[in-house]
């Protein structure tokens, strides 16, 4: 009985198999669908992922590095007291930024590196004599030319 059923099943599958044929389209689909998977998998994908991680890490480092974070505070600390020491705090408004660079370096050469020049807002010691006398907002240019930066560069 068991052998009969075995034979029956084998025969059944053999006959049924004749009706199940893969057509050309299916074969092509099977070959083609695996191709992109093979192409994408592997090194290119790994490299892409690594590059993305590196870019993110670099960005994060750039934003969060201690140097970058500390800079503003270090800058503001010495600058804030300066106006008080060099000059009466009355003239803050009029003088925008005419010649801050040279004067500031002169004003506190010890405490700051020369690089800090371009951020002169509160210091502006230049206007001191002329500005107070005239009361005009543009005395600084007249005062500065003599002490202007160029000579030092030469």
């Amino acid at each position: 009985m068991s052998d009969d059923l075995d034979a029956l099943l084998r025969d059944h599958y053999r006959r049924a198999a004749e009706g199940v044929q893969p057509d050309r389209e299916l074969i092509d689909r099977l070959r083609n669908t695996t191709r992109p998977a093979r192409a994408v998998a592997g090194w290119p994908r790994v490299l892409l992922a690594a590059a993305a991680v590196a870019a993110i890490a670099l960005l994060a480092w750039g934003l969060l590095r201690p140097d970058h974070a500390a800079e503003p505070s270090r800058r503001s600390v010495p600058i804030a007291p300066l106006p008080a020491t060099t000059e009466p705090p009355s003239h803050h408004l009029p003088t925008p930024t005419p010649t801050p660079t040279p004067t500031r370096t002169k004003a506190h050469p010890v405490s700051r590196p020369p690089r800090r020049g371009p951020r002169p807002t509160p210091a502006r010691p230049t206007p001191r004599p002329t500005l107070t006398v005239n009361g005009t907002p543009r005395p600084a240019p007249t005062a500065t030319p003599s002490s202007i930066p160029r000579p030092s560069r030469r």
């Binding site: 199940v20 893969p22 299916l26 074969i27 099977l30 070959r31 695996t34 093979r38």
Partner: peptide, 27 residues
């Protein structure tokens, strides 16, 4: 791999059909 697909697709497709009794699912 291509040769393997061509050689085995028929047998494996029949196996799949006998397992699930559904041609599209088998594919």
């Amino acid at each position: 791999f291509d040769e393997f697909v061509i050689a085995s697709a028929g047998r494996l497709l029949r196996t799949a059909v006998f397992l699930v009794y559904d041609r599209h699912l088998a594919e």
